[in-house]
């Protein structure tokens, strides 16, 4: 391939964010002239904050819990709320996927790609698991390599055509199938539209966190996890129980969460929402989210004590569970109030 695909360097703006999907939404919308966009705003409008404990599913042989909504929802909901159309395409054939991508960047437009993490060469080996819902932006093609803006990286990076094909066609759960996506028809977004979008995002999260009558979903989900944690030591033994806690810590604090299981990003969003909606009543809710995030982090320290084998008595597991139950109560109450708040 020739080098005609090079994008204009000045437009090749790299924005680093905590979470990949927020980052892709932010960067792509900013590219299309939505200057006010930033990570917390994308996360809040896209109703990204969540909690779920999937009881029968195992990830890496440990329980499947998530502090965020399903992959793809943030991009979909943020764009929808702002009246932006999205084009998405999946492919059977890697060649067709490559041609489509090349044509798109030849137009000079950055695009989002879903990729698997396991074969991403610029990630440290310790972080390369079979996780297929990672998102990156392709900015162009230069010196035989694709220019990649990976939102969790500090700098722009690059992938060879072979490397990119491999990660775009990773297999297994959530296989990307070469998925490519980008916003189209991004018009002027009026302040009214933004206000409406922010309100909608808040209401949606408040609904998810309080109204789903399933004990594993939303704020109640923490309580479900707490109940499970109390039984882990006697049912699974210390080693496996410790491993399960390690999984919780990773889902909660690893790169991509912004710390405290996404709660700090959401607190930052509510702070911005108060300003956008000119409504100081949202500030206490931002503070509640900060509190929840802080409690989660204290709990991570507690769990690390168990994982490292310092504190492995039943009472140590109970303490972790107690903290989870406290977080459950805090979030349930906060979101119930938030749901009733007139915005």
């Amino acid at each position: 391939m020739e080098e005609i695909l090079t994008d204009i360097p000045s437009k090749r703006q790299h924005i680093q964010t905590a979470h990949c999907e927020n980052g892709v939404v932010t960067s792509l919308l900013k590219y299309h002239g939505v200057d006010f966009m930033n990570e917390p705003l994308a996360f809040g409008i896209g109703a990204g904050m969540f909690y779920v404990h999937l009881p029968f599913l195992k990830i890496n042989n440990a329980p499947a819990i998530a502090f965020r909504i399903m992959p793809g929802y943030i991009f979909r909901d943020t764009c929808k709320a702002l009246g932006v159309n999205i084009t998405r395409k999946k492919f059977r054939s890697p060649d067709a996927a490559k041609t489509y991508l090349d044509n798109k960047i030849a137009e000079g437009e950055p695009v989002g790609c879903q990729v698997g993490v396991f074969n991403l060469p610029y990630f440290p080996r310790e972080y390369r698991f079979h996780f297929n819902a990672h998102n990156i932006i392709i900015h162009g093609f230069e010196n035989g390599r694709y220019i990649v803006s990976d939102p969790v990286m500090e700098e722009l990076t690059s992938l060879s055509p072979e490397e990119l094909e491999e990660v775009r066609f990773a297999r297994g759960p959530l296989a990307p199938n070469g998925q490519i996506y980008y916003p189209s028809d991004v018009g002027e977004i009026s302040p009214e539209r933004l206000k409406k979008a922010v309100k909608k995002g808040i209401k949606k999260t408040a609904w998810w966190m309080t109204q789903v009558p399933i004990e594993q979903i939303g704020a109640r989900g923490f309580n479900y996890t707490a109940k499970k944690i109390r039984k882990w030591r006697s049912e699974l033994g210390e080693r496996k129980a410790g491993l399960y806690l390690a999984q919780i810590v990773r889902m909660q604090e690893e790169i991509g969460t912004g710390g405290g299981g996404f709660r700090f990003i959401y607190a930052a969003f509510l702070e911005q929402a108060a300003e956008i909606l000119n409504n100081d009543k949202l500030i206490p809710f931002s503070e509640e989210m900060t509190k929840s995030g802080d409690l989660l982090r204290y709990n991570a320290v507690r769990m690390a004590g168990v994982i490292k084998g310092r504190n492995t008595e039943q009472k140590d597991f109970d303490e972790v569970a107690d903290a989870m139950a406290e977080i459950s109560a805090l979030e349930l109450q906060a979101f119930k109030k938030l749901r009733k708040l007139r915005l």
Partner: peptide, 29 residues
């Protein structure tokens, strides 16, 4: 990137090299 409060109590992005607590969890995995 992590989200942290600055001196005035406003949220901003901060950069972290890592945290021992989660390094222990990853190590255990």
């Amino acid at each position: 990137v992590c989200y942290v409060k600055d001196e005035d109590g406003k949220y901003e992005q901060g950069l972290s090299t890592g945290w021992n607590v989660k390094a222990d969890a990853l190590n255990e995995a």
